[in-house]
């Protein structure tokens, strides 16, 4: 297991180099002089020369790339052109916000999706099965922004049960430690605040989690149906096991392998910045951070944002690969 993880980590190196090459190219693929583009048409020659100097644009490409890599290895993502702040520290709260939202969205997607899939497979062709699969079909097909707006309209506007936007009550902001607000409020032992923050999470989590939930439900169902036909399930039944043990122990562990793949990919997609959801719910996540940077042509931020998202995606895939090995002892690399 340990050697496997080490080998898998070594395999990451070429992937990471490829990623940095792409993000590095972003700045240099801008048509014309990057400094000119960044400063705009009215910039003086002197200003452009200054910016080229500070960005190191007058060095040869490989020297620039080497410096970029060295900076990255030291955790230096560069400086935002707009706020003049270090991106590496500026981006952290955004990552935390996205992480928190993704966590709860996937929690919703996995719990509801996997169980709906299991029960659908268990009671194949029952009314539950038809209803769940209809719901899943609607879930996959529904535009996220529409669902988000409907949620806001029904649960925030009309019923007034849940807050429509933001991560917390803005009149009473939290003293952030980890920037994961649920965790922060628990560290402060402030349970009332934790409750408020959880309430803020419900609507965006459901909006964001609905598509993954539907995909997971469909995948779990088909995978379970496949596994339930296998010989070893018949053996378990011949041993005298109850249906619950058959399904939740023997069938589920075998059926989870393709489902875990889907969960990993979907988590990656969500972490990659759910721009629509984050915009509608005014959620200060990575997606919004990069989106705003694009509006301001803040190239270092775009570059770093993409790099961070790609890095998280790769890490999730690593985690999924390790999980495979846990699920299926036959897997060898």
């Amino acid at each position: 297991m340990v050697t496997y993880i080490i080998r898998r980590l070594l395999m990451l190196i070429p992937v990471l180099i490829g990623m940095t090459l792409i993000t590095f190219s972003i700045v240099h693929l801008i048509p014309g002089n990057p400094a000119q583009v960044i400063l705009g048409e009215t910039a003086t020659g002197e200003a452009i020369a200054n910016l080229e100097e500070t960005m190191g644009l007058n060095e040869p490409y490989f020297v620039q790339y080497w410096n970029y890599l060295l900076d990255l290895l030291q955790g230096d993502l560069g400086t935002s052109l707009r706020s003049k702040a270090e991106i590496s520290s500026e981006i952290l709260p955004y990552i935390a916000a996205t992480f928190e939202l993704t966590f709860f969205a996937m929690l919703f997607a996995i719990i509801v999706g996997v169980n709906a899939g299991i029960i659908s497979a268990w009671k194949q062709n029952s009314w539950f099965d038809f209803l769940a699969m209809l719901f899943a079909l609607v879930g996959v097909s529904m535009p996220v922004f529409w669902l988000a707006l409907m949620e806001q309209w029904i649960f925030a506007q009309e019923l007034g049960w849940l807050p429509a936007y933001g991560r917390q009550d803005s009149r009473d902001p939290i003293a952030a430690i980890t920037h994961l607000y649920v965790l922060d409020s628990l560290i402060h032992l402030d349970f009332a605040r934790a409750f408020t923050i959880l309430k803020h999470l419900i609507l965006p989590s459901i909006a964001l989690g609905t598509i993954p939930m539907a995909i997971i439900a469909r995948m779990t169902r088909s995978s379970m149906l496949e596994v339930m036909k296998s010989d070893y399930i018949r053996t378990v039944r011949a041993k005298g096991s109850g249906q619950f043990l058959v399904i939740y122990k023997h069938a589920l562990k075998n059926a989870m392998i393709p489902v875990v793949t889907v969960i990993g990919l979907q988590t990656g997609v969500l972490l990659g910045g759910a721009i629509l959801t984050e915009t509608i719910f005014s959620w200060p996540g990575v997606g919004r951070y990069v989106y705003e940077a694009i509006n301001y042509r803040d190239y270092p931020v775009i570059q770093s944002g993409i790099l961070v998202i790609a890095f998280i995606f790769v890490m999730i895939n690593l985690f999924v690969d390790i999980l495979y090995k846990k699920l299926d002892p036959r897997i060898k690399y």
Binding site: Y232, R234, N254, P329, R330
Partner: peptide, 12 residues
Amino acid sequence: FQEPMTSLNPVF
């Protein structure tokens, strides 16, 4: 059963 290769659950 007939198939000893597939009659045992591979993941336990």
